[in-house]
Amino acid sequence: MSEHEQSGPIEQGVLDLAVRVFGLARAGEAEELAAYLDAGVPPNLTNEKGDTLLILAAYHGHPETVAALLERGAEHGRYNDRGQTPLAAAVFKQSAETVRVLLDAGADPDAGQPSARATAAFFDLPAMTALLEGRPA
Rank of each mutant, 00 (worst) to 15 (best):
M1H: 10
S2C: 03
H4L: 13
S7C: 04
G8T: 11
G8E: 15
G8I: 14
I10W: 11
Q12G: 00
G13A: 03
L15T: 02
D16C: 01
L17H: 01
A18Y: 10
A18I: 14
V19W: 01
F22R: 01
G23R: 02
L24N: 04
L24R: 03
L24D: 02
A30R: 05
D38G: 09
E48W: 09
G50F: 02
G50Y: 01
L54M: 03
A58D: 07
H60T: 11
P63K: 12
P63D: 12
E64I: 12
E64L: 14
G73P: 04
H76G: 00
G77T: 04
G83P: 01
G83T: 00
Q84L: 12
A88H: 12
A89Q: 11
S95L: 02
T98L: 02
V101E: 12
V101L: 08
L102T: 07
L103I: 09
D104T: 13
A105E: 07
A107Y: 14
A111Y: 06
P114M: 06
R117I: 03
A118N: 05
T119N: 11
F123A: 12
D124Q: 14
L125C: 00
L125N: 07
P126T: 11
A130K: 08
L131M: 10
L132S: 08
E133M: 06
G134K: 06
